[in-house]
Design a protein around this nucleic acid. Structure first.
Length: 424
RNA sequence: GGAGGGAUGGCCGAGUGGACGAAGGCGGCUGUCUUGAAAACAGCUGUGGGUUUAACCGCCCACCGGGGGUUCGAAUCCCUCUCCCUCCGCCA
């Protein structure tokens, strides 16, 4: 949620920022209009309330029953006006809230202006793209040949975009998750295991609702929403709390599965395990004071990159343009690893600073110092990393001509010492 | 799934129509006393919105789990939802 004060004080900056994100700049005027209306009505209704409070206090002191009745009638009339204005007020407030709820965060100055992923900027490339003296296979051929990846039975169980991992494949995935978590714990993150189904207001707080409802799974019977990313419960963790400055920063890491309908990506990446309805991810999440959020952003990037480095996967870092960034983000860097078999850069991480955007939606504040008034924290999120795509890169980059796959060294302790995955 | 009991400020806990943003206690902060600390004593101690201001202060409004209703007036009465606790059933 954007700060309403920005609309009051620097409407031009808001207009420019929103325009970069493809929002009609006229929306800013709508917001300002509603805000003015809101305050006008509010003042009037509050004055009437003050009048009624005053009058009601006097009533029990009036001795003369006739005069007393007169006052009651008078206050009843005031009450009726209050009711009418209240109704008007809640309509205006609802419109304002709905409008504000659909506006994305303003892009950081450094965010390149653009429409879609074609306008993203590659910041750096790290590591060597592996060379092969044979034609490397894509994971959708390699995995089934190894017997570790079963698409047919995934479809039998749940339909398209589902798969089953077998044996060493399942274990490799579990190894990746543990390795990622441990790597981040080393950096001082605190592990959290949140619910995978959450209430609607929690999904709203992180910004996935109301705009992206079509991409979420929803249980109508209980009104649960399945988390599309751990970012959702990790934002909700401190919803409506006032944190102590001494406790900041809070640096969390959580493993969760993620559930996405992928309605928006129908027909894209249908082959393999690149884009499923269910996938695993290890997520970093930081709550901090505004002054430190830029440093934390850099730190989280370094932490996500470290995971790629230890797995010895070549990767590149992109800065997302204004049109491609997520709803809540002011700045986002993506990490893509190279997958030799399908010959693609695969997005495995997205690190974003949402500044106070999510904190405002979720009402997460802190007290900068004893006795001071509260301020919104800054929140940042980043994947470290999305598991299936890392799995793809490991399988495809570490493959040999005979169809076997060497287990990256850092994962071996998590695989009972297994060094090579061979066809069964 | 069935039966009953609850939800009040950072915490405990009083409060069944007006003097209640809320007694009392604990905790916290400030002051007095003290070389310092403890103790004692005194004062202060929630959040959000609006208004005003350079800023503080002030003033007004709202908030006693959420929503709705009755009333001139609701923490208090009514309806409804959610959550927690106890007992029974079922269950990894």
């Amino acid at each position: 949620m954007l700060d309403i004060n920005l609309f009051r004080e620097t409407p031009d900056l808001v207009r420019q920022g929103l325009e970069k994100r493809g929002v009609d700049p006229a929306t800013v005027n709508e917001v300002i209009d509603l805000d003015v209306q809101r305050r006008d009505i509010l003042q009037e209704v509050e004055n009437l309330r003050a009048e009624r409070n005053q009058g009601s206090k006097e009533i029990p002191k009036i001795e003369d029953p006739e005069k007393r009745q007169e006052k009651i009638e008078e206050m009843r009339a005031v009450g009726e006006r209050i009711d009418a204005l209240d109704e008007e007020l809640s309509e205006v407030e609802e419109s304002l809230h709905h409008l504000m709820a659909t506006l994305p965060n303003l892009p950081d100055e450094s965010t390149p202006v653009g429409e879609d992923d074609a306008d993203n900027v590659v910041l750096k490339t790290v590591g060597e793209i592996p060379e092969f003296d044979f034609k490397p296979q894509a994971h959708w051929d390699l995995g089934p040949a190894l017997g570790i990846l079963d698409f047919e039975r995934g479809v039998k169980l749940s339909g398209s975009r589902f798969y089953v991992l077998n044996g060493a494949g399942a274990r490799l995935q579990r190894a990746l998750i543990s390795f990622m978590l441990d790597t981040l714990l080393e950096q001082g993150y605190i592990e959290r295991y949140p619910p995978f189904m959450v209430k609607e207001d929690i999904v709203f707080a992180s910004g996935q609702l109301p705009k992206f409802e079509a991409n979420l799974y929803h249980d109508h019977a209980e009104d649960f929403w399945w988390v599309p990313t751990a970012e959702v419960p990790l934002t909700g963790l401190h919803k409506e709390e006032i944190l102590e400055a001494d406790d900041l920063p809070l640096e969390y890491v959580a493993y969760t599965p993620c559930f996405r309908r992928e309605k928006m990506s129908a027909g894209r990446d249908v082959r393999g395990i690149k884009r499923g309805h269910q996938f695993d991810k290890v997520e970093m999440y930081v709550y901090c004071e505004p002054e430190e959020s830029e440093d934390k952003f850099e730190q989280m990037m370094a932490d996500a990159e470290r995971v790629c480095q230890r797995l010895e996967l070549p990767y590149r870092v992109n800065q997302l343009c204004s049109g491609d960034m997520g709803f809540a983000a002011a700045i986002t860097y993506d990490i893509e690893v190279w997958a030799a078999g399908c010959g693609e850069w695969l997005e495995v991480s997205s690190v974003s600073n949402t500044r106070d955007f999510q904190a405002r939606r979720a009402a997460i504040r802190y007290r900068p110092e004893e006795g001071a008034s509260t301020e919104y924290v800054h929140t940042l999120n980043g994947s470290a990393l999305g598991v299936p795509r890392v799995l793809i890169a490991v399988l495809e980059n570490y493959q040999h001509a005979d169809g076997s796959v060497v287990v990256p060294e850092v994962l071996r302790p998590y695989m009972g010492g297994m060094e090579v995955i061979r066809p069964e």
